[in-house]
Design a protein around this nucleic acid. Structure first.
Length: 563
RNA sequence: GCAGAUGUAAUCUAGUCUGGUAGGAUUCAAGCUUCCCAAGCUUGCUGCUCGGGUUCAAAUCCCGGCAUCUGCACCA
């Protein structure tokens, strides 16, 4: 579908529109209008139904602004930064490390100064016009801010919601009673200071994500429920192979998808997107090429949808290995590990050296502490009972008499070990999904537009109209409207314009059903329910309206079964 | 970020070359009409992307910003 058509509809009907328009707008920023906000809530609800209710994952909600340390550990500060150079003659911009790729080793790990001197040394010039290049300039795609008005700490707007699920691991692990696997979700905004965002709502500087992090024992990557769906098929486009349909178990068995949970959550993703109204024929899973894999990923599949913008990445499902947890452990010294109990405890005999400080002190005075540490680090094999031992203190070899230490042998029971869990991350781009839902459900016949949204996603569930806004029809319609809203069903009451125009408005907003009160209602106590996609009408009792509407809303009956 | 094109109401558009009251259609709103699929009639609301310059006078000419589109580059 032509993006301009979708954009025009979105603006006209209040799904979404460019932000700050009266002040000239701002690239990469969009507002959700009334219909868009409602639709966004519905998508989030559908997503939570699967991940929180269905899979038993737990939701957290953390700050957007995060201290610099988080992104030093996550790698975003270094990996999300590019050094660019510009040609002074033709103004063409390049990534500095790309120009040095075949000239020096590991240019992407070089500092600004190293890049500059390497470029001077090897006389790197503009590849297209041979002009002089500017000095490298660092470009980081995170939004930077200051925490504390007078300076304080550097902060950044998070580029993904994921990090909080990693650096809070120890608390969440306790919440899940110290058992693997378990999963956490977070829905919220992420920020990327894109160089030149385009394509409407599909590439934003401030965008909405729905992310899950599921933690596993690396030696036992299993998720309950895989067997139930293992024969289901997905449309796969593996790295270096032909696109084709394949069952989950075959794909895992042949090593095309790295492991079961990865495949399982790909399937969950497919289910969610189909429930949201996407066209299965326009969906595929594409494996990341080795070269495009993020700095943290071990295997990654994108769920892509065919839209007016071409194939669009909606969901990324990555096996991040233990990269993030390990990195936060290294940077913070926090114990972000899981304890794996062995099936049976092991008895281990260890010999250790215990320094005798009351003997060491008088003999070595100030150096006693250092010597004690050195002794403590010796293993049992370095020592023979009753024989002096040599210790190296700052290059000086000191002989320590046997009365200064004891050698003890003890038996220990080891019941398990601490491991750094692996993580599978399904990460959904909410805005892109919303856009694709509009794209796949837009139908136009002779300039008449119908959005065939599933009722779970539709921003408004029922239009409620009096055929004419008089003779009491409006009062009856209003009371029906009120009844539905009391049941938690979002309606739209409309009494102005002709009935056809009102139906048309609702069709364009994707409202699945309309309820109309007419003159016969007074006599037979019935109203008309009209189906958006077929335009068929059925009459039902006014007294039954709320119940029928609720059943249509939750999907327990369909239109053809009512009346 | 670079190059080119574009910018008139919620939407589509005339007017820009050649400076002189901004026009139409759709939408939207109020009303009439026993009105079930964008019917008709009456009435009404909303606009020159922003800033500066030239000029008696700027939607129109000049400069700059912003945004959109296309291509390049970028895109965890």
């Amino acid at each position: 579908m032509d993006p301009n058509t979708i954009l025009a509809l979105a603006k006209r009907r209040g799904f979404f529109f460019p932000s700050f328009e009266i002040y000239g707008g701002m690239a990469g920023m969009f507002d959700y209008g009334p219909l868009g906000s409602s639709m966004k809530n519905n998508i989030e609800k559908l997503w939570r139904d699967h991940y929180v209710l269905g899979e038993g994952l737990a939701e957290i909600f953390s700050p957007i602004i995060s201290p610099e340390e988080v992104f030093i550990a996550s790698g975003h500060l270094s990996e999300f930064t590019d050094f660019s150079v510009q040609c002074t003659k033709c103004n063409q911009a390049y990534r500095a490390d790309n120009l040095l790729e075949d000239v020096v080793d590991n240019p992407d790990s070089m500092s600004k100064e190293e890049l500059h001197s390497a470029m001077t040394e090897h006389n790197i010039r503009c590849p297209s016009c041979k002009g002089e290049l500017s000095e490298p300039e660092s470009v980081n795609l995170m939004f930077k801010t200051m925490v504390g008005p007078l300076g304080g700490r550097d902060g950044y707007m998070r580029p993904e919601t994921a990090q909080a699920m990693f650096f809070n691991f120890h608390l969440l692990y306790r919440f899940f009673r110290e058992k693997l696997p378990f999963g956490i979700v977070q829905l919220g905004k992420g920020f990327r200071n894109e160089i030149s965002p385009r394509q409407g709502i599909t590439r934003l500087r401030e965008f909405n994500m729905m992310e899950a992090e599921i933690f596993f024992d690396p030696d036992n990557k299993k998720w309950p429920g895989f067997e139930e769906v293992s024969s289901r098929k997905l449309r796969l486009l593996p790295d270096g192979a032909e696109e084709g349909e394949m069952s989950l178990e075959d794909a895992v068995g042949q090593g095309i998808i790295a492991n079961e949970p990865l495949a399982y959550f790909m399937h969950v993703t497919r289910d969610i997107l189909i429930s949201a109204g996407l066209d299965e024929d326009k969906l595929r899973f594409r494996q990341h090429l080795k070269t495009e894999m993020a700095h943290y990923a071990a295997d990654c599949w994108d769920c892509e949808a065919l839209t007016g913008y071409g194939w669009l990445e909606l969901v990324g499902i990555a096996d991040r290995g233990c990269f993030d947890l390990q990195s936060h452990i290294d940077h913070s010294d926090a114990e972000l590990t899981a304890f794996l109990r062995y099936p049976e405890s092991k008895e281990v005999e260890t010999t250790s050296v215990v320094p005798n400080l009351s003997a060491l002190g008088p003999l070595f005075k100030g150096r006693a502490g250092v010597i004690a540490d050195k002794l403590g680090n010796l293993s049992g094999e370095d020592i023979v009972r009753g024989v002096p031992v040599d210790v190296d203190v700052d290059g000086e070899i000191i002989s320590i008499p046997p009365e200064c230490f004891e050698v003890t042998t003890e038996k220990k029971t080891i019941s398990g070990e601490r491991i750094v869990p692996h993580v599978i991350e399904p990460s959904y781009g909410l805005d892109r999904i919303l856009y694709t839902i509009l794209d796949h459900n837009y139908h136009e016949v002779d300039d008449y537009v119908t959005l065939r949204l599933p009722i779970t996603i539709a921003p408004v569930k029922f239009g409620v109209f009096p055929l004419m806004a008089k003779d009491g029809l409006d009062d009856t319609a209003l009371s029906i409207d009120k009844k539905l809203r009391k049941k938690g069903i979002l309606t739209y009451f409309d009494s102005s314009g002709t009935i056809g125009r009102r139906y048309a408005r609702m069709d364009e907003a994707g409202t699945p059903f309309c309820i109309t009160v007419d003159y016969e209602s007074k006599e037979d106590g019935c109203v008309t329910v009209r189906d958006r996609d077929t335009k068929d009408q059925k009459r039902i009792k006014i007294d039954d309206v709320a119940g029928v509407a609720a059943s249509l809303d939750d999907g327990s009956i369909t239109f053809d079964k009512i009346g």
